[in-house]
């Protein structure tokens, strides 16, 4: 592992300053992904700026939303009473991810910016356009069973691994960023980007940009929401497919909805076509299936992950039906 300088900071501005002065600097949150990638030789920062001591918590915003500090640990986030009561899909998504130990370490900011678990990306002996631009993508002809069915490119078929980000994409979260030019905000969806011909860029953030907080806007009907995750074993495993959904139904008709899918794209995938098909439609399993079909019309599965198409359909129908039944 390349030797690296280490600096611990207590404010976002000082973090950005330290990163600007450091050689090949990266921000360190819980380290659950970054430290592993450094050991694997996938990334080799010359400076680590430890941002875990920057003060931040979970605060209410005017109107009933939440402002979540980027350094809040995943375990604390999922246990927070207001997260559990206002946005159960967010608590469920975080609780479905990783293990108790990892959740105690991982931060909200680091969770958003974690890298794909595509096996070729993590293996420096293999080509990978995300790790080494222009070297090629063995996944397209190789093991892509758990990779993307939406929005992939010739360059990259990787998926974003976060569960939490799927819920945040469904909830129209806004990411607060501190950069060299000061603070700005980036909406979700919109933080993560599709691979195109630059799969080395996971997000729209630039060098030195620091995620400082995530703001979840008020959404009263999200008090009835779900995150359902399908995986290869019952616990401590990345998603094969996941669905985050909130549904507002009155008089048997869907008045509004939010749906996002996980483990199907380079980004947490907001199911806009499904949402459009559902708004104003009867809240029936038949219509839930038609909404899933509307979304899946955009899918371009690869030979080994065609199973994800019916799996997304089935899980989406089940989640939406469960939301109607709990009313």
């Amino acid at each position: 592992m390349r030797p690296f300088a280490y600096e611990r900071v207590s404010t976002a501005r000082s973090a950005v300053a330290a990163a600007g002065e450091g050689t090949d600097a990266m921000y360190l949150g819980g380290g659950t992904n970054l430290v592993d990638l450094m050991r694997l030789g996938v990334v080799a920062p010359g400076t680590l700026v430890d941002v875990t001591r920057i003060a931040g918590g979970v605060e209410e915003t005017p109107g009933g939303g939440l402002l979540i500090g980027a350094e809040v640990r995943n375990g604390d986030l999922a246990a927070h009473p207001l997260v559990r009561s206002r946005y159960p899909m967010l608590a469920e998504a975080v609780l479905s991810g990783a293990s108790g130990q990892i959740r105690n370490m991982a931060t909200v900011g680091g969770n958003l910016l974690q890298r794909t678990r595509c096996s070729y990306f993590q293996d420096v002996t293999k080509p990978c356009n995300k790790r080494d631009p222009g070297s090629g993508c063995p996944a397209r002809a190789g093991d892509h069973r758990n990779l993307a069915i939406f929005g992939h490119s010739e360059s990259c078929v990787a998926t974003h691994p976060s569960d939490m980000a799927v819920a945040l994409a469904a909830l129209d979260a806004v990411v607060h960023v501190e950069g060299a030019d000061g603070p700005r905000s980036v909406p979700m969806p919109g933080l993560h980007r599709l691979p195109g011909d630059r799969p080395d860029r996971d997000t729209v953030l630039g060098p030195g940009d620091l995620v400082t907080a995530v703001e979840v806007p008020p959404l009263p009907f999200a008090a009835r929401s779900r995150y359902r995750k399908v995986r290869d074993r019952a616990s401590f495993s990345f998603a094969v497919v996941s669905v985050a959904a909130a549904l507002e139904v009155s008089g048997g008709v869907v008045r509004d909805c939010r749906i996002a899918l996980g483990a199907v794209a380079h980004v947490p995938w907001r199911a806009e076509a499904a949402e459009a098909a559902l708004r104003g439609a009867p809240a029936t399993e038949e219509r839930f299936g038609l909404a899933a079909d509307a979304e899946l019309a955009r899918a371009r599965p690869l030979p080994l992950n065609r199973f994800k198409v019916p799996l997304v359909r089935n899980v989406m129908i089940r989640v939406l039906a469960d939301l109607v039944e709990v009313r």
Binding site: R2, P3, A5, Y6, E7, R8, V9, S10, T11, A12, R13, S14, A15, A17, A18, G46, D50, R53
Partner: peptide, 21 residues
């Protein structure tokens, strides 16, 4: 220190001959 008041800082030990740090 404007937020860097309580910092632990480790800096590279350089040997001055341009070799890897």
């Amino acid at each position: 220190g404007g937020g860097r008041e309580a910092r632990v800082k480790g800096e590279a030990n350089t040997n001055g001959d341009g070799a890897a740090p």
